[in-house]
Design a protein around this nucleic acid. Structure first.
Lengths: 177, 177
DNA sequence: TAGTGCATGTAATGCGTTACATGATTTC
DNA sequence: GAAATCATGTAACGCATTACATGCACTA
């Protein structure tokens, strides 16, 4: 089966109860986008492709005069999902401008370089606020959906703390021999 | 000044002593690639653009009959670098297939879902081995270059430990009421 | 009745990687 | 003499985002 970057997201979100392309996009934007983004330009063509391949089944289910197509996983689709789940992980990419800045921070006076660490810390704290807001939403998520949210929270807590520790270390080093 | 994704990497690596496009690509591949990749297809055209804009100065410095162009930052280039360093961080993107798998792991029997956590843990450990090898290379890096390497090591240690903790938690929950 | 949300879709654009071409030099 | 390294460069390809177009329904 041909795989694109959106394939697993679509299969996975349908397994979690999403129905329309619109649903999927919304779910992505409030969950996977933090580690796996997807746009309409990928989702809609891929839905048609997956239906043609028999991994999902679509059915017109308009809301009044408002057109809507509801999809669900077929047996083949569920199988493809579990196969992907058990396959080898390939992609782990990080594009972190704040880390890149830190990497080149020797070009700055010490004071300003430390400012970059502080800014990174704030970044983690802001991210944390977003994740806590998501966490506070009513309704309970499946175990592993929740686990990943918990990962995000723990990661940002760790990251903020790491920045703090390095700040303290570098500031105490200021008094040289 | 027009900014593309490679601009800061080039300016930054030149500030750290890289000279040719080839140098830059090598430096990227053994350092920033973990959080900011760049390919020849970006680097060479951008070097020419930056020279035309006066941010870097190039000079032909062939190695015998082997052509080579050595660049260095101009005053304007150094200024552009520090401005970028002090600007607002925009890009923080994560594309983590292992996290995506975990997110959909409720579709698997418990045993196999826990296997995903174990696989993620192994991923962190393998990454750690790569970073330790880089750390063991002789020569000392500038402070913040070293700091970022240290971040990578600490992050993967944290990540492996988090997986371990979750595994233990989820396994102990196995004995229900 | 204006604004927001539901819903589908695509064209244009931009960006980055891959893969290749070329050739000299150093090392084994 | 083969293989690796130094060194520059680009064309083709694929992919993903952005931005737009369309239209119904609900709500303030």
């Amino acid at each position: 089966m041909k795989q694109t970057a959106v394939t697993p997201v679509i299969l996975g979100l349908l397994s979690l109860g999403a129905r329309s392309g619109y649903d999927i996009k919304n779910a992505v934007d409030s969950s996977t986008r933090f580690f796996w983004a997807a746009s309409y330009g990928q989702i809609y063509p891929e839905l048609r492709r997956l239906e043609a391949e028999g991994l999902i089944a679509g059915e017109d289910s308009p809301n009044g005069g408002r057109e809507r197509r509801a999809y669900k996983l077929t047996a083949a689709g569920r199988k493809a999902l579990t196969e992907w789940l058990l396959g080898r992980t390939v992609t782990i990419e990080l594009r972190d401008e704040s880390l890149l800045r830190l990497f080149f921070a020797d070009a700055l006076p010490r004071e300003q370089a430390l400012g970059l660490l502080e800014a990174r810390k704030r970044g983690h704290e802001e991210y944390l606020a977003v994740l806590h807001a998501i966490d506070a939403r009513p309704g309970d998520d499946p175990d592993f959906v929740d686990l990943v949210l918990r990962w995000g929270i723990a990661f940002n807590e760790w990251g903020a703390q790491w920045c703090q520790e390095q700040l303290e270390r570098l500031q105490s080093e200021k008094t040289p021999a």
